[in-house]
Simulated scan of single mutants.
Amino acid sequence: MLIGLVTFIALMGFTLGPRLGLSWPEKFVRDTVGFVQGIFYKPASYIAGFFEDVRDLKEVYEENERLKKAVAQYERESADYNRIKNENLYYMDLLKFTEAQMNRYDYDYRPANVLSVNQDPNNHTLVIDIGAKQGVKMNMSVISDEGMVGVISHVGNFTSTVKLLTTLDPQDANRQQIAATVSDKDTFGIIESYDKKSQMLKMTRIPQDDPVEVGDLIISSGNGGVIPRGMIIGTVDSVEVGEFGLNKTAMIDPAANFQDWKTLLVVFTPEVPQG
């Protein structure tokens, strides 16, 4: 037993002492364990990576959905902001226009929204959202911030029909002729028709010695008591000798563009009291 114990201690000292390498049994065991771990580790890592990629893909999808909603909300808010901004600018310009007109003439301007437009070239009219209940009456002038648009041709309780200047026709016995003048000259003429081809208003009965010339600003003169003075009509595009050489005819480029209206102004004058 003593000899066996001494031999065991000697073997332990030999195996535990400093060595340059592993013994072949240790190498065999290490290689075997490493091979088996490799067999199981790679598939396990692939499976774990697959589920991790699926989780990442789901997170990316959810993030994309959140971003899409945020972009859509931003576009809606941006569109609303631009619409409100443009409307504010428009109403500010309209307010400046009415203030300038009121400082010049003792008129009241009632804003009206355009409800519908009849594009029939023979009956070009539009409907606005104020009527008799708001004091609107027949033949009242209707303007935009650019110039005169037309006159009230029909009045309901809460809506009114506006007959546009583009419907002026010398063959129409019910047409509303407009006595016109130049804003800073002593001149006279009648706006009696609209030329659809040239898109110009025709001003006739201008005296031969009248100083009207190209570029002059034409406004209503107020003669006749229907159309009030100072309604901007347009600018003179050309002046020609009229029939029989006794007077002149001028073609007027309208100030209003007769399209894309949202808000117009009905002109109330002291001669036509509000109801």
Rank of each mutant, 00 (worst) to 15 (best):
S45D: 15
A44C: 00
E65S: 13
L2A: 12
L168E: 11
N123D: 13
V117K: 00
H154T: 11
E146F: 07
T269G: 04
R55T: 14
L22I: 06
G34Q: 15
V29E: 12
L20H: 06
E59Q: 13
M1Q: 10
V29Q: 09
A112V: 00
K27I: 12
V117M: 02
V142W: 05
P111S: 06
E62D: 12
V239H: 03
W261H: 06
G13N: 10
L264K: 03
T235W: 00
S160E: 06
V127E: 13
V60P: 00
V226L: 12
W24L: 14
E52G: 09
I178D: 05
V33Y: 10
K202Q: 12
T249A: 04
L95S: 15
T15I: 13
N88C: 00
I206A: 08
T167S: 05
P18N: 09
L11R: 08
V36S: 10
F244R: 13
A173I: 11
L5E: 10
A48I: 13
P18R: 07
V214I: 15
V60I: 14
V33K: 13
K202R: 12
K133P: 00
V272Y: 05
T7W: 07
I39S: 06
K262Q: 15
N257T: 08
T15N: 09
P228N: 02
I232A: 04
L95I: 09
Y90I: 03
K163R: 15
L95K: 11
A179E: 10
E240S: 10
D129P: 00
F51M: 11
E99H: 07
N103K: 15
S220F: 04
D145W: 10
L246Q: 08
Q177F: 08
N247H: 08
D129Q: 01
P273L: 03
T7E: 14
Q176E: 09
E87L: 15
F50K: 12
T235Q: 07
V54G: 02
A250I: 01
G275W: 09
G275P: 07
V267C: 07
P18T: 07
L201Q: 03
M92F: 11
F40I: 15
Y91M: 15
R66K: 12
Y90F: 14
Q37H: 05
R19F: 05
A255C: 04
S220K: 04
I84T: 10
G245W: 02
H154C: 03
E52C: 02
F40C: 05
L165T: 01
H154Q: 14
Q208L: 14
E65D: 13
D53G: 04
D216R: 03
D184T: 12
T249Q: 08
L126I: 04
E75P: 02
L264Y: 04
